[in-house]
Amino acid sequence: MQRDQSAAYPLALLYAALIAYASLFPFTGWRDQGIVPWAYLWAPLPQYWTRFDVGGNLLGYMPLGFLWTLAWLTGRPRWRAAVWASLAAALQSLVLECLQSYLPLRVASNLDLALNAAGGATGALAALALDRLGVMARWQRFRAAWFVRESRGALVLLMLWPVGLLFPPPVAFGLGQVLERLERVLAEWLQDTPWTGRLPLRDMDLQPLLPGAEAVCVALGALVPCLLAYTVVQRRWPRALMAASALLVGVLVSALSAGLSYGPLYAWSWISRPVEWGLLSAVGAVLVLIRLPARACVGLLILALVVQLAVLNAAPQSPYFAATLQSWERGRFIHFNGLAQWVGWLWPFGALAYLASRMGRTGYGARRQWT
């Protein structure tokens, strides 16, 4: 398994960043306690702990060890990948626990370090066992048969897309509505500074989306992951299966998010008439475009992302959605301390950057990717 072709390497980096985010959130109140940050290593074991704490620390690092091992399975002996992955997970936990010594809302713990290291080693051993059983080789053959040579960027984006939907968007599948919040944040940052009067002002207030515009946003939002899959899958039936899987996952994750945010009785409350029309339009477009060449899918995907972002950011956040944000920010639902919201905000822009980078490449590799 070559690292430059494997999606495990960027996924390991992203998961390591997720762990760092969750371990250091909310990143405020840094202070020096007058002790070395690694003093927790020889402190007595914590007197109070729960099964959830033990399980969370153990299970939280297992994917990290698993992904690092897959990313480094490049040579012989292959057990070295598991060793390096275990050490990388333990080192990250050591550094993060030291940094937690400077945060008032965090407690550095030698027990947490031991559990994190054990979780990383367990994940590494699981990856090594799957490789010995031939599972990784079968996955490589499957990937070579279904996807173009350099597809890891698209695969990582497809895996992150449902994460962005975990935080309920203001419009179904409407990721990337950032304009109003960005304006508010800039105004707060520049308040009482000479730059306050230089902020660009809109000519008119943002207007709520009409039902037709909402249906367009839903259709484009549901179509985007399908088109992204079409850019790295060339045969018709694999394309159909990928598109159907993306739409099904999107609907189920949206229902899960609504159910956990408002209660199980409201899991399907997000499906309105515009949403129904948007989903039906997306399904029709998926079928019509199933034979479209990958290069044409790239251009159409960029157009869909730009149009959806333009329409979505021309509308304000609804008061109902603002109330949802407040309930989430109070911690009613475990959402990675706001990380899912960040993924939802940034995912469309990351997809545009990825597509621009792929189109900007020249030579044989680029021709092979988009033919």
Rank of each mutant, 00 (worst) to 15 (best):
Q2M: 12
Q2Y: 13
Q5Y: 06
A7E: 05
A22P: 04
W30F: 14
D32L: 12
P37V: 07
A43S: 10
L45Y: 07
W49K: 03
L59K: 05
G65N: 10
W68F: 05
A71S: 15
A71P: 07
R76T: 15
W84Y: 09
A90P: 07
E97M: 05
E97P: 06
Y102G: 03
P104Q: 09
L111H: 02
L115P: 10
N116V: 12
G120M: 02
A127H: 03
L130I: 06
D131R: 15
A137Y: 12
Q140K: 10
Q140W: 15
R149K: 14
S151D: 10
L158K: 00
M159H: 07
V163W: 01
P168I: 09
L175I: 04
Q177L: 01
L179D: 03
L179M: 09
L182P: 02
R184P: 02
T193Q: 08
T196P: 01
R202Q: 09
R202M: 07
M204F: 15
L209S: 01
G221L: 00
A222G: 01
V224I: 14
A229G: 00
T231G: 07
Q234F: 12
R239T: 10
R239Y: 02
S245A: 06
L248F: 01
G259C: 03
P274F: 11
V286C: 00
L287H: 11
L292E: 12
P293Y: 13
A294K: 05
R295W: 06
L303Y: 01
L312Q: 05
A315K: 00
S318P: 00
Y320F: 08
F321T: 07
E329Y: 04
G331A: 11
G331W: 11
F333R: 04
G338S: 09
Q341P: 06
Y354M: 13
L355V: 05
T362R: 13
